[in-house]
Design a binder for these strands. Structure first.
Lengths: 343, 343
DNA sequence: ATGAAAGCGCTAACAG
DNA sequence: CTGTTAGCGCTTTCAT
């Protein structure tokens, strides 16, 4: 093929008739120590030879790879797209490259992937941990001097790492207040298993607090992708609370889609038969069920902020202790919680 | 911090009381040339020191970085998620790491990013090109011996590269046949500017063919995110064709969402006032407008196949010429094209 | 079966 | 302002 033998800094130096040092200086914009004449000669040589510095060799010397990694729990979750976009923007602006790993919510995969990232000598990792207990991989990262920022979910670790989260407590509060304001009495909260996922746990805990004392709250935890269970639960819940002040709150995008599917199957009318709300506000929310009322997450900001925090640590002070930052969601009111038969 | 001085192969060798060569052999599973005793000693040393090989140093020697890149045109496009997921799976299985770059459909960004990837010495690139003219970056990749696979969109390049595409012609045919079968006469095709994006162009060309002679086809090209233009167009189109055999076909997810928003604003009923179809089938399609009829793309397969092709070239025969593979979409029939007032 | 030695392509003191 | 020298951490002949 056109696979010309690789051109190195030595080739450039020879062609320009200077030392490799000078070429190196030129490449790193160390122009103070270069006469404009040599600089020009080198520039030509670089152009002529179509030379590109080898990042590996450079990294080996400088201990600076220009690599950042984002380790996410579920790449199929639409929610993560905007977050990744936010990350990509920052990373790119800082002239770093972004590695992406998908752990599929499996701690064992997470460990393996982080291990590989360490060997790849990434400079920093933005991690959405899939299990709050699994901190050994993170410990390894720290031990190797790799900066870590937690995103979307946290980890029980001391000293704490920089962590960017949705203010889940606040999000649930906003949802509950809205629901109360609309005059609902019975809430069915549909969520994924909280177990060791802090975001889910925080939301569930918030839901369970007794502060919303006018509300009767039930919780449905989705075990698998079988819609039957939820259908049964909804049916039963409706029968038990026949007086129509019912609203379902979905914990995330996945459960929202899941719930909508079930309601669809059951031919349940929203908001006539019951209301529906969601945490997180995907682009299609306005057009499903006459518009789904939701608590929108600052998704891009989540990513952007996480990346900024990370870059900040990489490029300078890694000394100050990690801080937890909670970004607020905001209520987006739509048709799915408009009560119809108010009595 | 716990930032211990980095441990190298030399440390391991010393601790195990062997040479670096032996350690290297051990790491690369060159066990033929190692007594099981030394192997064990090395294994211990590795464990004790928590040693991790440095990928840069290794790459420098072996010219094998373990890095693959996916360069996509728009990371915010939901469609790309599934594709990336497919890619990630394969790449990960092959124990490579995946870099992701977002060109935001800007050829200048694309060039810069590819340039960076070359310096990063990735072994292969999966590219969704944002402009079919811009091939200089791709030429550079080839010149550096980096394998390239095109995905979703193609490029006017000779000799052709491996290319994985949706069979756009076929997708449009399926859509048109469905629409005819449902008894529609007037089609409004809503698309993004085709200019130098081959997927859009192929679809538009297919739409324009005269084979669908029972159909009257109009085309709306979305210039910006302003909904007013499309609203006007739809209004006019409806007035011109008052006899209700109208259907809108959207070229992709973005235009579908856009069109749905406009129809919503205009209080147009689907399928009562007009039908709607979409190319591509996002997860929410079943729940919008009573279910959007669509041509589902084999998104994961697109990604998976592209990655497999790439890995295949990397790991062996790069000799055979690039081939173009067109994957078929399939019709998913839903409520949005159920004609109501059939005469 | 094991080790010595020579680099991979680059940068960074240190001299001049 | 420029070049010489010595590595970064690893692999790989080539001896032994």
């Amino acid at each position: 093929m056109t696979r010309r033998t690789v051109v190195t800094i030595t080739d450039v130096a020879q062609r320009a008739g200077v030392s490799r040092t000078s070429v190196s200086r030129y490449l790193n914009s160390n122009l103070e120590n270069l006469s404009s004449e040599t600089a020009a000669r080198i520039a030509n040589a670089v152009r002529d030879l179509d030379y590109r510095p080898n990042a590996w060799a450079r990294s080996l010397k400088t201990r600076h790879s220009g690599l950042i990694a984002a380790v996410v729990a579920d790449l199929r979750n639409e929610h993560i797209l905007a977050v990744l976009d936010g990350i990509e923007m920052v990373v790119n602006t800082e002239r770093y490259s972004l590695l992406i790993s998908n752990t599929q919510n499996r701690p064992d995969y997470e460990g393996k992937m982080i291990e590989r990232l360490i060997q790849q000598r990434v400079e920093g990792v933005i991690l959405q941990p899939c299990d709050d207990r699994q901190s050994s991989a993170v410990q390894s990262l720290k031990r190797e001097g790799i900066r870590v920022v937690l995103m979307d979910r946290s980890l029980d670790i001391l000293p704490p790492l920089d962590t960017i989260l949705l203010d889940n407590q606040n999000a649930i509060d906003q949802a509950m207040h809205h629901v109360i304001q609309q005059g609902y009495h019975h809430v069915l909260y549909v969520t994924d298993p909280a177990e060791h996922v802090t975001s889910r746990r925080e939301r569930e805990t918030a839901i369970k607090r007794q502060d919303y004392n006018t509300l009767d709250v039930s919780i449905f935890v989705r075990k698998n992708s079988d819609t039957f269970q939820l259908g049964q639960t909804i049916e039963h819940w409706r029968t038990m609370n026949p007086e129509d002040h019912r609203v379902i709150i979905c914990a995330n995008v996945a459960t929202t889609l899941f719930t909508v599917a079930v309601l669809d199957q059951m031919h349940i009318q929203v908001p006539k038969d019951m209301g529906l709300m969601a945490i997180d506000d995907p682009p299609w929310a306005p057009y499903v069920l006459g518009g789904i009322t939701s608590i929108a997450q600052p998704t891009i900001d989540l990513g952007r902020t996480a990346a900024e925090r990370l870059m900040n640590r990489i490029q300078g002070n890694d000394s100050n202790p990690g801080r937890v930052l909670r970004l607020s969601g905001h209520l987006v009111e739509r048709g799915s919680t408009k009560r119809v038969h108010t009595l």
